[in-house]
Amino acid sequence: MYALMCEDSINGVFSGIYEAWAGKYNRDEVVLRTGAVCNFELFMEYRQIQEDAEAAQKVANTLRRRFGEETYERICYALWSDGEDKADAVYRMVRYGIEHNCGAGFRNHLTNEAVRRVFELWRAAFNEAHHYLGFLRFSELKNGVLCANISARHQVLEPLAMHFADRLPKENWLICEKNRGLAAVHPAGMDWFLTKEEQISTLSGEKRSTSDEEFASMWRCFCNSVSIEARENLELQKKNFPLRFRQEVL
C-alpha cells in the first residue's frame, strides 16, 4: 500500500489525485492523506507529493468537464473542510465517478460510501461558511480599512472572500483567519488574494475609528431593543447562534 501525502489545499490534493492516476501505482493500493502522519502504519509506504499547479489544473478541468460545476464545487468545499479523511474520500469518489462513467448526477448517489462522505464534509464546511456570511463583523480601522477576525473550524476563507468581494467591491477590507494564520485581503476595486496573517499585521494592527465605536454601540442597542421580553428564550438563541461564533461578534 502507498500513502500519498498531499498538501492541505485543493491544488495539493488534486496533485495527489493526478499522481495516483498517472499509472505508477495500482489504484487499489493507493490512499491519499493530508497533513502530518501521527501514527505510522505497517506495510504502508509513504510518498510526499509536491503541489503541482499544472497537474492540479488538469484534474480540475477534468472534474468540471465530466461532473459539472455543482459537483466540482461540492468537492472544493469538502477539501476546505477539516475532515482528516477528506483527501481519500475525494479520491475514492472521483475514482468511482470516472470508472463507472458517471455524469453530473452522481453526487446524489448517497448510498455509495465515498460519495456520502464527501457529501458530509461538504455540508459541514458549507454550513460553517454560510454561518460566517452573517456572523462575521467588520470593524472600521483608523486607516479606513474594514477588518474582520474569524476562528473557523473549516477553511472558509475562500468562499467568504468571494462573497464579500461581490458585496463590497469598492471597500478596502481584510478577513483574518486566526486558527490558520491566513488572511484574505481585498484592495478597493481590485481582486482579492490570500496571504499570511503576519504580513499584513501593520495594516490590521491599527486602532478602530471613533465612528466605528458609535455604530457598534448603536448596533448593540438595536439588538437589545428589538427583542420581545415576553418571549425571551435564551436556549433558542443559543441553539441558533452557537457560543463559538460569538467571540468575534459584538
Partner: peptide, 28 residues
Amino acid sequence: RAGDGSHMGNCLVSGVCHSFSADGRCIS
C-alpha cells in the same frame, strides 16, 4: 442579485441571518 462591481450590496436567495436576539428570533 449579484453585485455590480461598483455599488455596495448583493442578495442571496437563501437569505442570511446576522444575529439572534434574546427571544431566539433571527436578526437579519
